[in-house]
């Protein structure tokens, strides 16, 4: 599904280059639940952004579903991620001015899904996530865990093939974190490909594969013990 070949990413600081990713090659199959780990500044978020097509590598090739993303213009990339990728962020990034319902509905609007169908989809997921009672609240009226729940609901409502999560539990209490991770596990069981970035060993154990990154290089790539 994802095929990264010799990806490099750097920032210019004067004449010098600050390397973020160096010669990263990864292949990820559909149905995997991959955890990217590493210390702060190791490049894991950048890797996630490149895979999510929010960022572009300076060098190297990226094929997503056998399409050469690195050759695409922005418009086509937007199309790709609109249809196949969902995002979950550490800081939730809900739109403050929209209610829970409207936040979840927004990706469907961009996919031009009809009103009645949209309503049904949102109602379903609200039900599934047990947040029907909260649908008319605004993000600031929710707890962190509830906001992230909405964030996940919004990410998967369009039935993406790939879910990208950047420290999804980073701002949450441990009990709320567990709830989110259980949710991910359930999604994975239902067949979704998931790629998460985390510091937490505990969270990594929910997945099927761990990639450790340090100073821009891939150091280790292994299956977690008792996953």
């Amino acid at each position: 599904m994802i095929n990264l070949q010799h990806i490099e990413r750097y920032y210019r600081a004067g004449l010098a280059k600050n390397w973020v990713l160096r010669d990263v090659s990864i292949e990820i199959q559909e149905g995997e639940f991959v955890t990217i780990m590493g210390p702060s500044g190791s490049g894991k978020s950048t890797l996630l952004n490149i895979i999510g097509m929010l960022d572009t590598p300076d060098r190297g090739g990226y094929e997503f579903l056998d399409e050469p993303v690195h050759k695409f213009k922005e418009r086509r990339r937007t199309e790709l991620h609109k249809h196949y990728i969902g995002f979950v962020f550490q800081a939730y990034h809900l739109i403050d001015e929209l209610t829970v319902y409207e936040n979840i509905e927004t990706p469907l609007l961009y996919r031009k899904i009809k009103g009645s169908e949209r309503k049904a989809m949102v109602a379903n997921i609200l039900d599934e996530f047990n947040i029907v009672a909260k649908k008319d609240l605004f993000p600031h009226q929710l707890s962190g865990g509830q906001q992230q729940l909405v964030g996940v609901a919004r990410a998967i409502i369009g039935k993406p093939k790939l879910l990208l999560a950047d420290e999804p539990t980073g701002n949450l209490h441990s009990s709320q974190g567990e709830m989110i991770m259980d949710l991910f596990k359930q999604l994975h069981t239902d067949g979704m490909t998931i790629l998460q970035v985390t510091h937490s060993e505990k969270n990594a154990k929910y997945g099927t594969r761990v990639i450790e990154i340090e100073d821009g290089y891939i150091r280790k790539d292994y299956a977690p013990t008792d996953g």
């Binding site: 991620h81 995002f87 927004t106 990706p107 961009y110 996919r111 919004r154 369009g158």
Partner: peptide, 11 residues
Amino acid sequence: KEVGMRKVLGS
């Protein structure tokens, strides 16, 4: 933030 998020959501 809103602009960023909307782009991520496919706008």
